[in-house]
Design a protein around this nucleic acid. Structure first.
Lengths: 338, 338
DNA sequence: GGAAAAGATGAAAACGTTTTCGAGGGGAGG
DNA sequence: CCTCCCCTCGAAAACGTTTTCATCTTTTCC
């Protein structure tokens, strides 16, 4: 099928090993023959076989990306898409491919770790995981494969964080700065990034000495307008309604807005609301959502950088996690109270 | 590192070949030893090395996905994300991994075809390509690798289409049904899916005997609010304004809405507008955009089905392209004219 | 001029599989 | 008892590379 190194060597009148060395810039090959080999390779359209090469060298220039979403819809969440895009970009720049890894291959179900080993990826990025304490994910973290995680750190492994603490502090600061005191927070699933934000939320409220009524903090699901809807309903049923609701992400905020509208509430005149993420599309709509924009592109980029650095220097000292700041998007959905 | 088939064979007191055959369900191995091998494999945590296996069998159970976007942002377009998700789902179900392929690997730049050969993918899906006549893409289409395209067909290859013709006809039918006669169409880049929609647009207008003033049809870019903005400006500068503007996609429609708002025009009271795609997020916003929802998930699923079928039966007769219908989403942005 | 060093090349093993082919053994049939 | 065939199994080649080591040639240096 494809032209092999053997044919190339015949064409050049050289041995296979000489050709290989010429192609791989070994020092012990004369400039003249290297030139000749390179030229012939060009002519024949030769390129090495990644399988054979990987088999021999244990390097595949292939990065595994795991999206551990039981619903198979993590790609639908704009946050992860942007990360994936940044990751892919940096990987390409550095000469790596990326493969999305499943649990199922060739008919049988493999664990993530085994799947990664099976594919011989050089490293793994845990891009989206719903539960960082899932045994299968933990197994991955306990292996010796280079690994980078986003918004979570396993001991001994690299990680990149969105600055959730600063983000929540800034967002809440903005809300409080506009005079709100009764602020509710509908957060995402626990044991995830939501914990950090929730802590930051409580932190700020405490610092300012603002009371947090029963029922103002509740758990919902990410990326679900339905759950957001339900949660908002509960909030509105409270004896003392909040004046502003913080949602777990932009998409949920849309669900919240819909729920509020159904109750005849105008935004922001009657009630305020804010999101989290700041994805591209949300920025184009009216009313302009107040939200905290995470820099997903940069997060993905840094994750790839970290991972590749680890692959190429496995014993380099572990650095502090990268913390990527975002930026507050002041929209129109949080009103200034008199 | 990992446990190899040799160690497994030692453990079982069998030859390597016997073990391999036991694992691969060859008929010439007794049920007893097969049982023994499987059990030992389980105990040792054995799984084959994909590289070695692929090298020998020329099958990798790996699908290449090319996203040919010079801007590296096709993943940001919700249409392609949904397709990718459907594709990935079906691929996983059938035991295939997918790898995103670049032009750049290990320092040197490869053509798409070479990159696919290099990685030994079993087949390719051209998921997003801006120009189907790009020589590098054409080269791919002229190779003998199994190939499936979306919204375009190369002779001799499988393809899946979104029903662009029916979609545009239905959308425009809806608009005309609401009494509009001055309808403009800002379409995407030529030599792409836009051609079909444009033809359908012209077709319907002609059938109904409706005149199409100069400047009512213009080219813009996909997924760009900026270009949408410019295009709308031009439209508004015309001596006779359209009463309804069809945009090339939802995202562009948002740009169009913004531009119209800036001119103090209310939607839909003063002017109507419609999008195309019907992505999940757009469905949640106000005003509810009238648009045609493509079934990206299904398109991706079918593409994977087609591709895998072709891989597993290369000589099966070529079937007609799959045409996946969508559904009209009647929103609030197209007013009924008196 | 000779020995040592340096430079260039090639042979061969190895990576972990699959697959062909042949060998051995045992049972059935003549 | 011999032959033939079927059932299991193993030896070995092959897939396309890389890399070690040896070999051969040339240069260098005293």
């Amino acid at each position: 099928m494809s032209v092999t190194i053997r044919e190339l060597s015949k064409r050049c009148g050289l041995s296979v090993s000489a050709v290989s060395k010429a192609l791989n810039n070994y020092p012990d090959v004369s400039a003249a023959t290297r030139e000749r080999v390179l030229k012939a390779a060009q002519e024949l359209g030769y390129y090495p076989n990644a399988l054979a090469r990987g088999l021999k060298t244990n390097r595949t220039y292939n990065l595994g990306v795991v999206l551990d979403d039981e619903m198979h819809d993590s790609l639908m969440h704009t946050f992860f898409i942007v990360i994936l895009n940044g990751f892919r970009r940096e990987a390409e720049r550095r000469g790596y491919d990326i493969t999305l890894i499943n649990r199922n291959i060739g008919g049988q179900t493999l664990t993530y770790l085994n799947h990664c080993r099976y594919r011989n990826v050089d490293g793994i990025c845990l891009m989206c995981v719903v539960d960082f304490y899932n045994p299968e994910i933990v197994e991955l973290a306990q292996s010796d494969l280079p690994l980078v995680t986003i918004d979570h750190q396993y001991p001994g492994h690299d990680s990149v964080f969105s600055d959730n603490r600063a983000g929540m502090r800034e967002l809440l600061g903005h809300v409080l700065g506009r005079g709100h005191r009764r602020v509710a927070f509908i957060h995402g699933t626990p044991a995830s990034v939501t914990d950090v934000r929730l802590n930051a939320f409580r932190e700020v409220m405490e610092e300012r000495g603002i009371a947090l009524p029963e029922g103002y903090v509740m758990a919902s699901h990410y990326h679900s307008t339905r759950y957001a809807h339900e949660a908002v309903e509960k909030l509105l049923a409270l004896p003392e309604r909040p004046t502003c609701i913080l949602m777990t992400d932009d998409y949920s905020a849309l669900g919240g807005i819909a729920a509020l509208s159904e109750h005849g509430l105008r935004i922001p005149e009657d009630i305020s609301i804010a999101g989290y993420d700041g994805n591209a599309m949300i920025q184009k709509i009216r009313p302009n959502l107040t939200t905290y924009q995470q820099n997903g592109e940069e997060i993905g980029r840094r994750a790839a950088q970290r991972l590749i650095a680890r692959i190429e220097q496995p014993d380099a000292p572990l650095e502090e996690p990268d913390v990527v700041p975002g930026v507050l998007l002041t929209g129109e959905t949080v009103i200034r109270l008199a």
